Amino acid sequence: MTDYAIQALGLSAGYGGREVLQDVSLSLKSREILCLIGHNGAGKSTLLRVLFGLHRPSAGTMRIFGQTPANHTPAALGGLGVALVPEGRGVFPDLTVEEIFGLALWSASVPKGEQRERIEEVLEVLPRIREFRTRRAGTLSGGQQQMVSIGRALLTRPKVLLLDEPSIGLAPKLFQDLIRPIAALRESRGMSILLVEQNVREAFAVSDRVLVMRSGQFIFEGAPGELDDHTRLMELF
C-alpha cells in the first residue's frame, strides 16, 4: 500500500470566475493527522470540498491511496474511503438521530445485516450519542449535533476523515472530549485525518503536522511545536 492517503497536485478552484485555490499541492500520509489552519476566507473549506468531490477543480490531479478517482464526485471519493464532516454540521433537524444514521447507511449501500454493527462501532467511539439517539436533531445542542455529524461520517468506515472546523460553537472542554476519541482512530483503525481548525491548542495537541494557508496558498508546513511561539503564529495569520 502507498504511504500516502491523499496526494493532490496543482489544484486550482474558484467560484464565478474568482480563484480561491491557486496551484495547491498537498500530501496526507497514511495514519497521519494533518492540521490545516488559516484566516477566514483563506480557502480551507474550498480545499476540503474539492478533496471530497463537492467542488470540481479547474486544474490539478488527485490520487487516493495511489488510485485516481474514476469521477470527481462524492460517490467516487467515498468509494475510495474518503468521508467529510462539513462545517456547520449539516444534520437534518426534523429527523431523529436514528433516522439520520439510517439514511447515511442507505446512501452508502451498507447491507441491512451489517447496519447494526456499524452503528455500534460509532457508539463505541461516541458513546454519548446513546443518550439522544431517538431525539430529533433540531432539538440537540451544538455539541450533540457535532457528534451526530461525525458519527454519520464514521458509519462508512472511512480510511480518510476530513473535518471542517469541528469546534465551531463548542466550549473548549467539549471540543477536547470530542476530538480525542476521533484522533484515537488513527491508532485503532489506521485512519488518516485532515483537520481544519481554529482552536489551535487542542488541534495541535493531536496533530503530527501543520499547514498554514493564506489567500489560497500554503505559506508554512512543519511540526506543531514549531508554532508554539504565539508571535510566530500570529505572523503567519
Rank of each mutant, 00 (worst) to 15 (best):
Y4M: 07
I6A: 03
I6V: 09
A8M: 10
A8P: 12
L11H: 12
G14V: 04
S27I: 11
E32G: 03
T46F: 09
F52V: 04
G53T: 02
L54Q: 12
L54E: 14
S58P: 08
R63G: 10
G66W: 13
P74G: 03
P86A: 02
E87Y: 12
G88Y: 05
F92Q: 09
F92R: 07
P93A: 04
D94H: 12
G102N: 13
L103A: 15
L103K: 12
S107P: 00
S107K: 08
R116P: 00
R118H: 14
E120T: 01
E121G: 15
L126E: 03
P127S: 08
R128W: 06
F132Y: 15
R136C: 07
L140V: 07
S141C: 00
G143N: 00
M147Y: 00
S149A: 15
S149F: 07
I150S: 00
A153S: 10
A153Q: 05
A153M: 01
L154F: 08
L154Y: 13
T156G: 03
R157I: 02
P158H: 06
L163C: 02
A171Y: 05
F175S: 03
R180N: 02
R186V: 10
L195V: 02
E197P: 00
N199Y: 05
E202M: 11
E202L: 14
V206N: 12
V206R: 09
D208S: 13
V210N: 08
V212D: 08
I219C: 15
F220M: 05
G222K: 06
A223G: 05
P224H: 10
E226R: 12
D229C: 11
D229A: 12
H230A: 12
E235W: 01
